[in-house]
């Protein structure tokens, strides 16, 4: 974790109101793990409105750069969307607890701007697959079995234009199925219905691990589905995050079991943003974005 400046190397409007920034910062690119975030100051240093940093999941790392992807939601993201290639951003990164290591079989469930950290997780997992293959070749292993992870992605959005990261999943050879609220692509419905059908079809087998990120109602449904099928599940949470480093106690979520009063709430920025669904009290889970 460090506070530093990152040069904007690229800026794309990947969907209406959705921007992808490529940021040059070698240390962050080298250290970042899927599920971690960058805390970005969206304004000039001497203007105090909007005042706070904004947290964005890291979407990809490539060489000395890393990417973030965001949707313009409020004043901070609107301000950030106006920054151009060649400008510098003040960032604190990488922050937060990343996704746990992916077992042999995993399902990625993303909704809206919750998809990017899952694309990062897919890329990170495929890089591991590549390393294992290289090692096997080096050791002249004759085993021809495919040891690559079995990954599938369910991607949801309001409509076809807002489906994110589908090209990335295709490049990574991760099968992606989509659902849209308006039926303009894939299933006319919720991404959680795809997950439900997938788990139902596999009843009896050992369940894959589920990794999910998206709006709170979606995560609540994912958690309930996974609990029903007894499938382990990690979610990445979002909340107003003034400091991002664990000092303000602002971005909390209620824990499932509190041994003591002071452990009733977990800080999303440092205890998360990735948490196991069984760590949380879904009855009381409420965030600003939910």
């Amino acid at each position: 974790m460090q506070q530093t400046t990152a040069l904007i190397r690229g800026r794309d409007e990947v969907a209406r109101g959705h921007y992808r920034l490529k940021l040059l910062q070698a240390d962050v690119a080298a250290a970042a793990r899927a599920g971690q975030f960058a805390h970005v100051l969206p304004r000039r240093a001497d203007v105090y409105d909007p005042m706070l940093r904004r947290a964005f999941s890291i979407l990809a790392v490539e060489g000395d750069t890393f990417d973030i992807l965001f949707r313009v939601e409020g004043r901070g993201t609107a301000e950030l969307s106006r920054r151009r290639t060649g400008e510098e951003l003040d960032i604190v990164a990488p922050l937060g607890r990343p996704f746990a290591a992916v077992p042999q079989r995993a399902v990625l469930v993303g909704g809206g701007v919750g998809v990017p950290p899952l694309a990062m997780l897919a890329a990170q997992t495929r890089r591991e697959d590549g390393r294992h293959r290289a090692e096997n070749i080096e050791q002249n292993t004759l085993r021809q079995t495919n040891s690559s992870h079995d990954l599938i992605a369910f991607v949801g959005a309001r409509s076809k234009e807002e489906l994110l990261c589908l090209e990335m999943f295709a490049d990574l050879q991760v099968a992606a199925r989509v659902a849209t609220d308006d039926g303009s692509a894939g299933l006319h419905g919720r991404v959680t219905e795809l997950l439900e059908a997938h788990l139902a079809a596999q009843a009896g087998e050992k369940h894959p691990t589920i990794y999910a990120c998206g709006p709170l109602p979606m995560l609540r449904a994912v958690a309930a589905t996974c609990a029903r099928y007894n499938a382990p599940c990690q979610v990445s949470l979002e909340e107003n995050m003034p400091c991002g480093i664990g000092v303000c106690n602002g971005c909390v979520v209620r824990a499932a079991q509190a041994g003591n009063d002071y452990e009733l709430y977990k800080r999303i920025c440092v205890d998360g943003p990735v948490m196991w669904t069984h760590e949380l009290d879904w009855q009381h889970a409420a965030t600003t974005r939910g």
Binding site: P242, G250, C251, D261
Partner: peptide, 17 residues
């Protein structure tokens, strides 16, 4: 020990929070 208040606990306002 104190658990603190339920979330949401913070919100940004004009040049403040």
């Amino acid at each position: 020990p104190r658990a603190g208040n339920a979330p949401p606990r913070t919100c940004e306002t004009a040049a403040g929070m």
